[in-house]
Design a binder for these strands. Structure first.
Lengths: 210, 210
DNA sequence: TAGATTGTTAATCGATTAACAATC
DNA sequence: TAGATTGTTAATCGATTAACAATC
């Protein structure tokens, strides 16, 4: 119902859902906001605010029904039907991403992978069919795929992104170490491993000096 | 010199440095703030603010000297000596991370990897020696490593993090899909691939509906 | 009821953006 | 000089946090 959810809120909701599923086993079927907050490393108020955003109401005595809340978040994030994902770049990182997501989210499947290397195409890798990059437009349009993961070298990321958007992609998870410029109606999440590791190294150094 | 740099600022600086190195080849040796801004997908004011933070001064006529600025940022982020990194978890994702960082940053090397699986230990993978997890404390303490990457299953992430911090680790890049709770003097960067992909899928769905 | 939690509003905090005098 | 950019301050924006009445 709330149409404008922030980036961060959606990320936290995704995390809550997973935590709920694992907490339900160890703890009971009811949780208070501070239980969930502790598991997610956020504040209890933040949890209340986020849960409120999906329109689920807890009880002041019992707290939140774990099963119902998880389902409610699921309906909210996943929508009605299954969502197909495509992957461009089946190198070391691309294959690891494929393996990572295989069977992890039932409603979120990588159904098509693309690569330039002739040795990788026309094979099934981690249960996903790998096509040549020339077939990006045709495959994505035909299967009406809206989400893509980019795991190609930095120099190729922008042209690939442009082709993807032209084919109908509206959300991109970008592992290439360069920012993408796309139309404003396309959501891009940058996963810059180099920048992240440098940040960690920087603050680690700073901490150990004090 | 500026002691309190924000998380995001350091990340952008890391990006600028890489962009500068590649821009220097295609463009000249001087760049204006809006050139760098366009490449990094931020505003020119943001670039000026960030550059100012590392203490480098540009010229109103020439702009920024690409080589000098890149070196200045490098000195700032990397510090004086090389920085060693450790990796825990040499599964699909761990190996891809190893391959990714090998030779990419000269000052940032993964020098020790750890795994529970006897088939993976005591081997050299992508140029990095792999030890059994029992040797975490000894190895990290002896080599005075301050930075670590966690790529183990969610259930093992917290105990691994605790051991790492006890051994002297002060910065963690966490790929395990669960938030870590550590002492406040330890910097943790969460890399939650599942949450990121769900975010992308969510906004892609929302965009294509409008 | 008393107590702890809930949904929700108000205050705070920090980062981003806009604006402008100083500079070459 | 005129012009475009710089460093830097002030205004804006948004998210987080704190506070509180309502609820079981």
């Amino acid at each position: 119902m709330p149409t404008n959810l922030s980036d961060k809120t959606v990320g936290r909701l995704s995390l809550y859902r997973r935590l709920l599923n694992s907490l339900a086993k160890s703890q009971g079927n009811y949780l208070f906001s501070h239980d969930l907050a502790a598991a997610a490393s956020v504040t209890a108020t933040q949890v209340r605010r986020d849960v409120m955003a999906v329109g689920y109401a807890g009880s002041p005595i019992k707290g939140y029904d774990v099963t119902e809340l998880a389902e409610c978040i699921g309906r909210f994030i996943d929508g009605q039907e299954q969502q197909a994902v495509s992957l461009v770049g089946v190198g070391n990182l691309g294959r690891a991403i494929l393996a990572y997501f295989t069977g992890r989210r039932p409603n979120l499947n990588v159904v098509a992978a693309f690569d330039r290397d002739p040795h990788r195409v026309n094979r099934v890798i981690h249960g996903c069919r790998c096509y040549p990059v020339e077939m990006i437009e045709e495959t994505i349009t035909r299967q009406a795929i809206r989400t893509a993961i980019i795991a190609v070298p930095a120099t190729e990321a922008q042209p690939v992104a442009t082709r993807l958007v032209r084919s109908g992609i509206r959300g991109i998870l970008n592992f290439a170490p360069t920012p993408l410029r796309v139309a404003p109606n396309v959501y891009v999440e940058e996963m810059d491993l180099t920048a992240s590791l440098e940040k960690v190294a920087f603050f680690a150094r700073q901490q150990s000096q004090t």
